[in-house]
Amino acid sequence: MSETLIKIRGLKFSRGDRVIFDNVDMDIPRTGITAIMGPSGTGKTTLLKLIGGQLTPDAGTIEVDGQNVHQLKTRALYALRKRMGMLFQSGALLTDLSVFENVAYPIREHTKLNESMVRQLVLLKLNAVGLRGAMDLSPAELSGGMARRVAMARAIALDPMMIMYDEPFTGQDPISMGVLVKLIKSLNDALNVCSIVVSHDVYETMSIANYVYIISAGTVVEHGAPDEIRNSHSEWTKQFMEGLADGPVPFHFDAPPLLDDLFAGSGKRRA
């Protein structure tokens, strides 16, 4: 395992009364693909937003490249974000700009390159995701998988040191899923960056990850190389990896016995 890029210590975060993270520690290496997996609603996306400094934790620290994200001034935080790429679940392309302009956007914002340089860069990035031919389309004309690939091209536009993928495989057909898996892998290898993949698609994620964190109920349940996870003895991990309906995570949401509820009286809700 190489040098640590992101160091999370004692992270606590809650929304209203709901605790999302309770004392989470993580180390994410500078190179390679780190997968963060867990059931829906465990705050995986929240974790990425915490790393990106869009949310502030209740306690604990997140250090990215030696800088404590949440103590940075706006200017320094923005400087740090320029070195982060993030791929949102929906792609988050700017709908009023064409595909080309979307990829060019961060370049135009943060560099003073002339138009022909911008064009060259954008074409290279779009070529890397195989969508150079779609550069004149508008985001509304793209399929979900293509939108994500464009968003990938945009995320790598400024050659970041890390790329965060938020649920990159959700809702994709097998072909575009395969394309995305291959792309994440090949981009990571070509750019030699830190890739963080947040997902609950076990099979695809495990096939490319170098290291895996499994989180549930606000804590890290298990972490290790994919093989270690596969051979885990933890009941919980087994249930998650194999997708069993019942196990440590019960099929039934917490409720009083069925008979009690059925005869609890007419029209009256439980307090």
Binding site: K49, G52, A92, L93, L94, E109
Partner: peptide, 17 residues
């Protein structure tokens, strides 16, 4: 709509206010 489609978040992450 830009908020709902994460475009605002996306801008923030591109270091654009």
């Amino acid at each position: 709509l830009m908020k709902a489609t994460e475009q605002l978040s996306g801008m923030e992450m591109m270091a654009v206010n």
